[in-house]
Design a binder for these strands. Structure first.
Lengths: 254, 254
DNA sequence: CATGTATGCTCGCTTTTGAACGAAGAGAAA
DNA sequence: TTTCTCTTCGTTCAAAAGCGAGCATACATG
């Protein structure tokens, strides 16, 4: 039995019972209580459980969130660098649209700390979940829950997006190419993004350096629509020229 | 029985009875009265109860606006008992509407294990989150994220609900009374529930025993609309008569 | 080889619990 | 009202259970 295997089993017990105890776990897995405690400690650091004397209870709010969270920690540093550039571009009290991407998610976390009030319209379930107890006004687009993601898409989401006119759309993508434009991996989200862009006065695109030149399945909207691009490394000269031609403000760490 | 577990159970008794006594608690948990006193002391420090001679009473104010996660673990056993009754009432492949309540949430968890395919329309963020990786089709109503809850409400959610016609509405409430009807603590959710009920061929109401006779702020829909009621304890004879008059099928543990 | 991770073990510290006893509250009787 | 009695509370002490830090070992990984 490997460590992560054990933790997975602990998690599954947690999901069904909402709580676990140190001593029984230790004996079922044939490890010392120390090990179990360390497991629970780890789970607590990840925000999944709260420990109490003799065991731990599940944190409802992140109940099924583990896969997302791990995915979210990939390139987290890059995403945070990008996120730092967003607050100066957003005025307190303004309204924004946010798509379902971990980059945008990180950026909103930073906004939450630096702004008093914002109105957020989003199709991301993760954002809904995280802002349930914030002071921001949050609107969900509704729509169909896309399989294996926390994204709401489809005609209903599109209709919903069209109801709002916002100051800025904060979106990400899977790849940008000078010839192919801005691309995403799946049709429904790419589609929705296009409508988001359409309802916003300004379009702010968040792209980390790995997206430059990456080609992906489906085009979203053209570069002409982008007002501002945030990234985590200085792009190559030809990209800077390209952005200049399209009148896109590029922001990157100096 | 560990300390935190005992305190949870005390809380759960508090939520259903509004008050507890030291001596009976001590004997049910097989601990000394001192221990119970210390538990109550702790709960008092947390602002949940006020102690008085011989026991403690629940602080009314906090009972309504409980954070979701505490509310969710309270009376979990009762909720699971109710949840068990739902699968036989729902045919595989059918479509249902689900509100934002921990009882309905538990019931859907059970459905997830016993059905191959369902279409769920919900205003609950928690359900969206939990079914992101399931085989069910899930639609979000969208709408405004209600403060300090994981519930989507408002005109946009209502419009959205009206787009769908489903086989069953699975809903809960905060209180039922023969004279006042079915009640909830807040207007927006009560409102939405009414529309949900309206779009469903059958209305299934999930109520634990603490809700019987409990009066709450705002009425939702009348008993005439309810087709089936699931609860965790056999209701009193007058309630059974009452349900009979309204042609409501009542299901409870035998 | 060095490095990092996982695990077990020990020891001192904290939390929890029960027992004991005096103090305080409730209710009845004067 | 005052007094008396019984119950309930709070405090203190000690024992037991649980915990965290630090160290050592084992094993994989680079």
């Amino acid at each position: 039995m490997l460590a992560f295997e054990r933790r997975e089993k602990i998690l599954s017990t947690l999901y069904s019972d909402k709580k676990v105890f140190v001593a029984p776990l230790a004996s079922t897995f044939n490890v010392t209580e120390e090990t179990i405690r360390r497991d629970l400690e780890k789970l607590e650091r990840e925000g999944v459980v709260t420990r109490n004397y003799g065991g731990a209870t599940l944190n409802e709010r992140t109940s099924e969130d583990l896969p997302y969270q791990t995915r979210n920690t990939i390139n987290l540093e890059e995403k945070r660098i990008i996120a730092q550039f967003l607050p100066p571009l957003i005025k307190d009290g303004s309204s924004i649209m946010a798509d379902t991407s971990s980059t945008v998610y990180e950026a909103l976390q930073v906004l939450q700390q630096s702004k008093d009030h914002l109105t957020i319209i989003t199709n991301s379930v993760s954002i809904l979940q995280d802002f349930a107890f914030s002071s921001f006004d949050v609107f969900s687009t509704g729509g169909s829950l896309r399989k294996n993601s926390r994204s709401l898409v489809g005609p209903s989401a599109i209709r919903s997006v069209q109801q709002y006119n916002v100051d800025a759309a904060v979106v990400s993508c899977k790849g940008i190419s000078m010839t192919q434009g801005i691309m995403d991996t799946n049709e429904p989200e790419a589609d929705l993004k296009q409508y988001m862009q359409n309802q916003a006065r300004r379009v702010i695109l968040l792209v980390d350096h790995t997206k430059f030149g990456a080609v992906s399945l489906v085009k979203t909207f053209p570069f002409e629509q982008v007002d501002c691009l945030l990234t985590n490394k200085k792009p190559a000269e030809e990209w800077l020229d390209f952005f200049g031609q399209h009148e896109i403000d590029v922001i990157f760490p100096s």
